[in-house]
Design a protein around this nucleic acid. Structure first.
Lengths: 161, 161
DNA sequence: GCCTCAGTACTCGGATAATGTCTGTCCGAGTGGGCATGG
DNA sequence: CCATGCCCACTCGGACAGACATTATCCGAGTACTGAGGC
């Protein structure tokens, strides 16, 4: 039950995208250089965010990625599911169906007590993630480190790639 | 973020172990036959439960596995961590350290706001799993299907392998 | 008849292959800007 | 000097290998039962 490392990259990159000038776009290469990440692979993760509708992309010169909507409307769950997929962590393969007394017309993913318990736990996890928006994270960071927005912008401005 | 299928097998096997006669042991082959699972591979999962102290094993004829303690003292989290390990799902590789302004003397796993948010969500998940014992699951199953203990025992009794 | 002892079948336990997913990289399609050219 | 059209550099996007974890299997070490043999 290990989460892909792309989740961390995506979250921090989305956070950086909240600090760029409105109307501007940031290329995958620049976002990758910020944390010394493999540019092509980060690009792959950003594409997943595009497919999920979290960021928009524009090709060509002056192109790149930008947030598709306000940070208040982007939850951590959105980003996580965009990278990891919507599937649940606990896979109920319905072993009960293979066991004695197993019926073909029963949806054990819903009926199995074990599956229900695991689902309840995952629901708590999802609820926690869905309750935290990118704007809240951004606000917390800016409260602890007020210089972050300005220093981030200036670092990107002074980048030569 | 996919959980190994061994978790489902381990949970259902532990549940079956709650229904055998006290003092008896159940072999991996029999437990596997119950759900038509690969015997050797289920044995591997059961070994993980042994290392975690959830079940005990005895070799030789009349040997097998039995629960190491009362079902009231076994939580779903115990079983999950026994199979999947204690590591967290979200891997914080501390990308902030690689970024501009990153310090070597800061533990970003604790300080990073993103990591904190993800940790909080996982804590909610763990708390939910830790709050559900094997005894509760067993009781719920027996309430819905009162014949389960007897039919399970008789199935194992009538098994020839 | 009872005890002793060797043989045997059975079980777990860890070491060993096969498979699938995640990680990482590369090249092509499309776009916008920049520059030379002509009016 | 200004408008126009071509060329080029830049960007994303998806197709292509390598590394790692998971899945699956097999064989060896140890144990308790079983039966024969002796007292």
């Amino acid at each position: 039950m290990r989460m892909g490392e792309g989740v961390e990259w995506a979250l921090h990159s989305c956070l950086n995208l909240t600090w760029i000038e409105p109307g501007e776009a940031m290329t995958a290469a620049r976002l990758a250089a910020f944390y010394q990440l493999p540019p092509a692979y980060l690009n792959k993760q950003l594409q997943a965010l595009v497919r999920a509708g979290i960021v928009t992309s524009t090709p060509g010169p002056r192109g790149g990625f930008r947030l598709a909507r306000a940070p208040e409307e982007i939850t951590l769950l959105d980003v996580v599911t965009a990278i990891e997929g919507t599937g649940e962590a606990f896979r109920c393969d319905e072993v009960l169906r293979r066991g004695p007394g197993g019926r073909e017309d029963v949806d054990y993913r819903q009926q199995c007590v074990v599956a229900q318990s695991m689902r309840r736990a995952e629901l708590a996890w999802r609820k926690e993630l869905a309750g935290r928006t990118l704007a809240e994270v951004k606000a917390t960071v800016e409260k602890r480190h007020p210089g972050t927005p300005a220093s981030t912008r200036s670092w990107f401005a002074g980048l030569r790639t």
